[in-house]
Design a protein around this nucleic acid. Structure first.
Length: 111
DNA sequence: CAACTGACGATAG
DNA sequence: CCTATCGCCAGTT
């Protein structure tokens, strides 16, 4: 049995276009639960393999990869860079540019 | 059944 | 910039 929240979250994650990233909290919010950021992580561990979810496009709200180095960090970074995502000197992604913003019609929002 | 745990977030120092 | 805490929910022990 999969909750509606999970189905929505999975649907959203599978909709993330290449070259863009998304954050846990944002997925949770769009899926209907503002505080379920942690469940997103759990969903990824549970379904990333069989549900065909592009888990590498999911990063935390600071634009950084949450995985520890040596356990997927480098792999995720490589996948993102292969899609055109840029990391700065502190291994941080510029969310102003690479965060997917479906509500804005996929346009970049530059303050 | 209670306690732990975690690919998080926000706030405070 | 960094670490420290607390809160959240669901799956494991």
């Amino acid at each position: 049995m999969v909750s509606e929240f999970s189905k929505r979250a999975i649907s959203i994650m599978k909709s993330i276009p290449p070259g863009k990233v998304f954050t846990y909290g944002r997925i949770a919010t769009l899926a209907g639960d503002n505080r379920a950021a942690r469940q997103i992580a759990r969903l990824l561990n549970s379904c990333s393999e069989k549900e065909n979810i592009p888990w590498h496009r999911i990063v935390n709200n600071k634009g950084r990869i949450s995985l520890p180095q040596g356990n997927g960090y480098e792999h995720q970074k490589a996948l993102l860079e292969a899609e055109g995502v840029i990391f700065d000197e502190r291994d941080t992604i510029d969310l102003r540019v690479f965060l997917w913003q479906p509500a804005l019609g996929d346009r970049n929002q530059i303050p």
